[in-house]
């Protein structure tokens, strides 16, 4: 294959990473499903895909901020469950929704401060937070149940002007993240911090005047807030609070981020990549359901795709 094309496909140019190859995979997958199953292009099915992918996509978008800066957030799954439990506390929406997001900010702040001020590795800090939140949510709501504020149910299940809410949620989440990542100095600083970490010089961004610790803390806060947003959406979908609904979400989110070409060493990645990564997961699941392929082999294929994407990328840093 032409060397230049290979470099383009494997993200050899620039900081956007490997997003073109996953996009081609997505298009091929969509094309295959269109030809193979007539049901795929039906509006109901496509809306179903959007509704299915949304929680993972929102969580993965938040995770992208942390990963680009060279961190990792394993606490998002438990935070999603916690958010659904808070919303199902049978209280008014104007109290419960701000309370859920205030708690998410607190979790993000704690993660960020522990990582930056106490030199704790992100995997360790957020893993500990995952345990703490998992315990807390099981104390708050041992089994699924509770009543949600009406506003949560309406904001998830309605269709104003015929536009499904899931689509509106997706546009708002992507637009907000786009503005933060590509339209602010903060976004640029995230790439600078991650680039320094990936090349083995963690002080690089700071030497250029970037407030690296504050930026990292903010990245963790954003990740938590997006997780809480996913929690609000999921709570509306299942119409209850569930202590187990977020289990494994952190790994799915990391999978989507990695499939989208964002490198875990930091500095390289993109928002479109993450959205494509989440879409690949959703299309895979939806397409295999439509073609009656065993759900168990879907898991194995998801792992294989993740491995293939990681194998395609080359990076200097070895290890985590």
């Amino acid at each position: 294959m032409n060397r230049g094309l290979l470099r383009l496909l494997t993200g050899g140019y620039g900081r956007q990473g490997l997003w073109l190859a996953p996009l081609i995979v997505t298009l091929l997958l969509a094309g295959f499903l269109t030809v193979r199953t007539p049901d795929f292009l039906r509006t109901e099915n496509l809306l179903n895909v959007v509704a299915q992918v949304l929680p993972i996509m929102i969580t993965a978008i938040g995770q992208t901020f942390v990963v680009i800066a060279g961190g990792l957030d394993l606490s998002v799954g438990s935070l999603i469950s916690f958010t659904t439990a808070v919303l199902a506390m049978d209280g008014p929406g104007y109290i419960l929704i701000p309370a859920a997001f205030a708690f998410a900010v607190l979790v993000g702040l704690t993660n960020g401060l522990v990582v930056t001020r106490f030199n704790v590795h992100p995997i360790i800090a957020t893993l500990a937070m995952q345990y703490i939140l998992l315990g807390a949510v099981r104390l708050l709501r041992p089994v699924a149940g509770g009543t949600l504020p009406d506003i949560v149910l309406e904001s998830v299940n309605g269709a104003p002007f015929g536009i499904p809410m899931a689509l509106i949620w997706a546009v708002v989440a992507i637009a907000t993240a786009w503005k933060l990542l590509y339209g602010t100095r903060f976004g640029l600083h995230l790439f600078a911090i991650g680039g320094g970490t990936a090349s083995g010089n963690e002080q690089a961004a700071r030497n250029f005047g970037v407030s690296d610790k504050r930026t990292m803390v903010l990245a963790y806060v954003i990740s938590s807030c997006f997780a809480a947003l996913a929690g609000v959406y999921l709570a509306g979908r299942i119409s209850s609070g569930d202590p187990n609904v977020g289990l494994g979400f952190e790994l799915d989110a990391i999978t989507a981020v990695a499939i989208g070409g964002t490198q875990l060493s930091g500095g390289i990645g993109s928002l479109p990549g993450t959205v494509i990564g989440a879409l690949v997961l959703a299309l895979l699941s939806n397409g295999m359901n439509l073609t009656n392929i065993s759900p168990f082999i879907q898991t194995a294929i998801k792992g294989a795709i993740l491995m293939a994407v990681v194998g395609l990328q080359s990076r200097k840093k070895m290890g985590l």
């Binding site: 490198q263 082999i297 792992g303 290890g319």
Partner: peptide, 26 residues
């Protein structure tokens, strides 16, 4: 994958685990 290909250890071992779990469940 990690030593020679310099792939992320988190992702490689996670992907291997996902594949093995899927394989056993299948």
């Amino acid at each position: 994958m990690i030593g020679k290909r310099h792939a992320s250890a988190v992702i490689v071992t996670l992907a291997v685990s996902i594949m093995l779990v899927g394989l056993v469940q299948f």
